[in-house]
Design a protein around this nucleic acid. Structure first.
Lengths: 226, 226, 226, 226
DNA sequence: TATGAATGAGTTTTCATTCAT
DNA sequence: AATGAATGAAAACTCATTCAT
């Protein structure tokens, strides 16, 4: 996934020093992007923030887009790695395995949602910028589409499994349901964490998301996670 | 809502002719915005498209932002007027009235979703641009927040009514649920109609949205709309 | 002196109504010029202020310069008429006549300075704008040069008379002295009334101007103007 | 005094090469300003004149005003340094020291006036532009006010000293007199050197200024500067 | 590698003046 | 005469990218 930039400049820095400078630039870029958004970020800001000369930026990245892609890439990495570690990666999603026990899926959904929430919160600012860039950069849209398709696919397969196991109504379209529920969680978090649509209480929102998710699928709620 | 510019330029044309030119500009603006997006649109494009001189644009609007606001304003007008005419305004929303009969609400939810879908489809291209602008224009974000709060509020009140009528589980948080379900419908339509996330079959998506909506709230599905 | 504008438009309005509109425009122009300066004044401002349509301005004046010239012309009219009525027109100046009595000239100088001061104060704001326009408009510079030459000429002739009468030292160059003293009074008033160089006390400044004027010429001060 | 721009553009060049370019721009700016006046000067002119790219101008100055300020700053520097070197800085001004001898002050006044005249002549063209800018730029007006106050203050103190020494009439208001005499010299030079008010003979004007200055203060003229 | 200067096409906005009604 | 819309040539300023050292 990494290395999306075109490839004019030395993508793989040779010296130790070069590698460090490159890292500094990536870190600086993320901070500046978060601070000002993609559109308002100037290459000069990034360079200044990284304490390197203006021209040095172009030693490592062919363009502003290129650093952004790299930053976003690492972010996606974090989002998926972290939120899929315990059970799964995305809303409503669930890991393959022994979830035949009717109560287990509920717990998994809940766990997945929480993990996703944590990841989202950690990266909220960048998520906003990613949203921004996605509105005008085709390449980037494609990247997100892929990510989404992947995690929705996993969710859909989980729902199918649960349908085969008889714990989810067979009348539900797994693919569409996975999409819709993912959209629900994703956009709710976006509106809250990014746009600041004030649900004064985090837990209330998360609990509602869990509940709606389970009810929509017809899963029995997990016993209180004592 | 419109009328953003401070006051040097004659916002409101005084003659018939002026009014026509202004309309031409708004129509042209919408077309160009849809064609190229907000960022790639130049005032020159709009003027050319409206077949007026460059300067004439500034006779009626102080900036690109200003026409955009006006275009968006009209779009929101259309979105809310049209989708709330039959009885409902927004996803999950319901008009005041005799919806105590347990099957009625389901029909209303369904009807609201379809109406919203139609409106969304009609305006899909502009919705994409609106999304774009919302990612960097604060004033605009605020405008959308207001619109969203309004329609979510209406949904929430409907849910409360249904809870009092005993047809929706009292354990659900009306406010949060309204938000989450609106986010689900909204974002699903966005991903599909705007981002082109290919659900080859419209009906499948809409039916799923209806179903999840109803199930999430615990409403009995309406009898087939014969 | 009036009628400096080129002459495309009907300079002499035919109807009574037209004459009134023209006057309104001149009055409005003066007010706007005083408020914003020449450079910052827009024809639109003048028209709006005069409560006439934008286009109507051009019915009476071919350009912004043209109204300005007319306004300035009237101002010069006022400056010279008023300040030369009692005794004389400009600093250090004196009317022709019986000023052989050695104390008389002092009183005349004093009176002329006061009258000039009053006129200047009355028109201070426009004087500032005239100064402004004079820095870039040749035609206008010429106009002022003429005015200056005239009043300096009168002063110089007075000095010569006084020299012949033996009450002013013959060693003084009448032309140069008239110039220099006029410059002193003029610029002092400018710095004070226009630039706001704060001599907290008007009288102190005026008395000093009188005194320096008289001493420079070697005139005995007038007896206290009881 | 210079350094007006906020902070995006690198005001101070970091390399030798940059410093040279900056100097070229300042020199070019002065020449273009003198040639066309501030208002008629385009940044493009300056850049072209300095033989740098359009954008390079903005590498060193945030605006036309900014270079102007710098040019003016250097000019003021020259005006004050040069004219105060021998012993005096401005018209009527005098250095501290042993000027009790009644003839000395006269010589000093005369010397100061000549020095000021030389400086003025050297910079006449820019003085015209400075006058122009001062009519509409507040910041600039303030700058001049400060310069004026300083030099007038010095003159005033000299007059006081002379009053205490008994060689200038105690009836004179030192502050006001200093102002008025400075205005006389300043404006006379302006009218002559800038506006071209034709005193065919320089010496005649200067001698008159000296004479009026001395007479106004009641100082005995200096013996012929042999 | 690192540095920072140089480049100039691209956009927005202004506004005096002209026109159509 | 009066009205207000239409025009379009300027001009300032930005900033990603390239270069010279």
């Amino acid at each position: 996934m990494a290395d999306t930039g075109a490839g004019e400049s030395p993508q793989a820095p040779l010296t130790e020093r070069g590698a460090r400078t490159r890292e500094r630039l990536i870190a600086a870029a993320r901070e500046v992007f978060e601070e000002r958004g993609f559109l308002e970020t100037r290459v000069a800001h990034i360079a200044r923030h990284a304490k390197v000369a203006y021209g040095s930026f172009y030693t490592y990245f062919p363009s502003k887009e290129a650093v952004f892609l790299e930053v976003a890439d690492r972010l996606f990495e974090d989002m998926t790695r972290r939120s899929s570690t315990p059970g799964d990666s995305t809303p409503g999603d669930s890991a393959p395995g022994d979830d035949t026990a009717s109560a287990e899926p509920a717990a998994r959904v809940r766990r997945a949602n929480r993990a996703y929430f944590e990841a989202y919160r950690r990266n909220a600012k960048m998520m906003a910028i990613i949203e921004q860039v996605a509105t005008f950069n085709e390449e980037f849209q494609e990247m997100r589409r892929k990510h989404r398709a992947e995690s929705v696919g996993r969710s859909a397969r989980a729902i199918e499994r649960w349908q085969r196991a008889g714990i989810v109504d067979a009348g539900i379209d797994p693919e569409m349901a996975a999409r819709a529920l993912a959209a629900m969680v994703d956009h709710s978090l976006y509106l809250w964490l990014v746009q600041g649509d004030d649900p004064s209480d985090t837990e209330r929102l998360l609990d509602t998301l869990d509940a709606l998710n389970l009810r929509a699928l017809g899963l029995r709620p997990a016993p209180e996670p004592s």
